[in-house]
Design a protein around this nucleic acid. Sequence first.
DNA 1: CTGAAAGCGCTTACAG
DNA 2: CTGAAAGCGCTTACAG
Lengths: 351, 351
Amino acid sequence: MSVNLTNIDERITREFGNQVTLQTVARVAGVSPSTVSRILNGTANVSQGKRKLVEEAIRRLGFRPNQIARSLAGGRTMTIGVLTQYIDSPFYGAGIRGIEEVLSGAGYIPIFTSGFWDIRQERKRLQSLMERRVDGLIILTSRLHDEELLKLASRLPVVVSGRGIKFPNLHSLNFDNAAAGRIAAEHLVDLGHRDLAVISGPHDHKDSDERLRGICLAVEAKNYAINDSLIVAGDYNEHGGYRAMRQIISRNLSFSAIIALNDQMAFGAMLALQQAGLRVPDDVSVVGIDDVTHSAFTIPPLTSVSLPMLSVGRRAAAILLDVFSGYSLGEKCEILEPTMTIRESTHRIVV
Amino acid sequence: MSVNLTNIDERITREFGNQVTLQTVARVAGVSPSTVSRILNGTANVSQGKRKLVEEAIRRLGFRPNQIARSLAGGRTMTIGVLTQYIDSPFYGAGIRGIEEVLSGAGYIPIFTSGFWDIRQERKRLQSLMERRVDGLIILTSRLHDEELLKLASRLPVVVSGRGIKFPNLHSLNFDNAAAGRIAAEHLVDLGHRDLAVISGPHDHKDSDERLRGICLAVEAKNYAINDSLIVAGDYNEHGGYRAMRQIISRNLSFSAIIALNDQMAFGAMLALQQAGLRVPDDVSVVGIDDVTHSAFTIPPLTSVSLPMLSVGRRAAAILLDVFSGYSLGEKCEILEPTMTIRESTHRIVV
DNA sequence: CTGAAAGCGCTTACAG
DNA sequence: CTGAAAGCGCTTACAG
């Protein structure tokens, strides 16, 4: 008489109910829980015989280890907290994708959370992440004070982008924002533009300030300056870029080119320009900063300073993985250089 | 002699090290762990005196409950798994934002993960979410078979968007895709267009098929048809829309309007049109479906069928929250109706 | 190579 | 109102 496996499975199910735990597996396989755990974690050599029995039991019972219990017992949650500002930002989205990509390949799972450019929200979200005992933190830009970051880093490894600081147990990944502003300006100057307008970010935005500084320095190096009335603050979104552009146009000052401190504002600016009857690039050249996916598809395609946000995400995750595998995280500050991506929204000035 | 609080705090820190647990709090406050737990959870009345002592101890020790331990002991992780396809998709991004918005207000934390339109990836990610013992699942579109969804729903509450099914313990939230196609077509037909081109999605994409069907039905209701040679498949991204548009143009057939089955493809199509010297909307009208944020800022601004993805996200999260507070999740299938958002990319045909 | 035991940091009946 | 005890489902020294 042949053994009916289905019936055995059913009996097991009936006997143990839905709560198939490591305990259940051990009982069914006739070994101790320790042995099952060791097989699961590859943590010690186990004899072929028992291994077979255990693997068979796991398969039959459809056992899935409870990661929560593993976390508590093992002291690692296999989870990484990620703070961003808007989870659906087209720019930071690339970083998020990069993080997910390298983390998931390593069995870690990222927990993404948004700070909404509000320091109190950030603290709350970070608090929540800490209560969840994440093994590490990736902070893709933040309003937090340096000391708060330092404090976090004393509790767990953190990699932060968007600022250049050196703290123990913290790795900083930063764009050279001044360089981004500089090459944008140089590109326009090289095309013969002298009257530059700028759509900047909100005034409390550090990246924006640095980019603007880069622009001004580049322009001053050529011995002229930007008219302050041609610098208007946007909000880093399409709408703000649109409004800022209209404001600039309404000032009735002459300008032949405009730099928006991020691409989203450049999109809005282009629309405002078009509505005012100004052609891009024939009447005014526009350059953005970020080079998000969409920038290759605007009309005309946008010339932009590429900031490698995807690389930042990947790198941040890779750094954390390295730390977990034993490398020490050391007071490092990596600077990523921007590059110019010239498309069709900029043009040599016609005299 | 006055008590020096700082010294007390230091002594406590020295004595208990960094591992401030509920146990520590109990000891410092001179009560049992049960009492501390009750205060933390508001789970029973506690005398004012002890409450004061405990709260003071929590404050002084800077105690933060370990959510992992709470999860294991309490049987709830306060965490919701969210499966999406690309975490940085501009369309699903709105849903993600909606989910985060309502969940975080309720103390739950969403764990977002991407399936990349690959059913095996989806299974892996879902597996990982289940091992993490999420309390509920939100599936923003998926390639999974209905039976797999049914199986998941037998283990925990799930709300799924993108398909209309009725299962116990599952709530389905769906757009009326056929209606989306229909109103897009009707809008164009009402403007006098007869020769319509369509950029569809990949062939195995259900939403795309339904939208296309809606278009065809609307057109047939007016007693004419769409030339099959004017229907070309894209990939739901800008690039695919661009390529499809070029292909359509190269066919040398006459068409006065085009419907792209999502906005991203419409963006690419507009660029291809412009490069071919065709003006939007003067030479060809274009309408998209989705109405993502950016669509208001293309040149010209894109007429699109609005799909309320933000509402879907919010609603999905709210449904789960309701379930956790006792409402039963019942075999419901909600249909969300699309609406037309007319901007400047469509125009009455000039004869 | 393997098992018994203790422990991770909480929650929750069970008594009183 | 409050505490002692058991338990959540694992991992990991400690012995052998």
